[in-house]
């Protein structure tokens, strides 16, 4: 499944989303340099792909970084508080746009779920095809893609 979507394509999508929606400039979302750290106090946002190809696109970062992302997305000042609702809305929307662009590259189109946000991902049986350890403004942020084709019997 990874042959239909290479690592570079996923990274380009993430870079384009962050540049256009959050930073206004490229170069602030970079590959993590060195061994990726364990992300403390994580927040996860994800969307599920449903249809002939099933899967999931997820973003994981620390709660502090998720707050900073929400502020940047909404054009807020560095010290302005972010409500829980806005954090869920903003961080979920980033996963929604990344997932939507990933889905647009798939050879067979299905549907995209509504974005969800939690402190951990629910388990999945889908195979992980790409795990990107990135740094947004120096803070760790992971983008992970799971994909699998459903066979004619409807089985994964």
């Amino acid at each position: 499944m990874s042959t239909i979507m290479d690592y570079g394509s996923v990274y380009e999508i993430a870079q384009a989303v962050f540049a256009a929606m959050i930073d206004g400039d490229e170069g602030l979302l970079l590959p993590w340099d060195g061994d990726p750290p364990v992300i403390d106090d994580p927040v996860v946002s994800w969307v599920e792909v449903e249809g002939p190809i099933v899967g999931r696109a997820a973003l994981t970062t620390s709660r502090d970084t998720a707050h900073a992302l929400a502020r940047a997305l909404m054009g807020m000042g560095a010290d302005e508080p972010v409500s829980d609702d806005d954090l869920v809305d903003a961080f979920g929307e980033i996963a929604n746009v990344v997932g939507g662009n990933v889905k647009a590259l798939l050879p067979d189109q299905g549907t995209l779920s509504m974005p969800q946000v939690a402190t951990e991902l629910p388990p999945t049986d889908y195979p992980m095809v790409h795990e990107l350890h990135l740094a947004w403004r120096g803070d760790p942020l992971d983008v992970v893609i799971w994909l699998n084709r459903v066979n004619p019997e409807g089985e994964i």
């Binding site: 384009a16 540049a19 929604n96 997932g99 662009n101 189109q109 995209l112």
Partner: peptide
Amino acid sequence: TSEGSPQMREQAAEAGALFLIAKP
């Protein structure tokens, strides 16, 4: 919308949409 696949653009046009802007 966050999804700008050719199939969706076709569906949008068939339904009468003037354009589809893909996010981001």
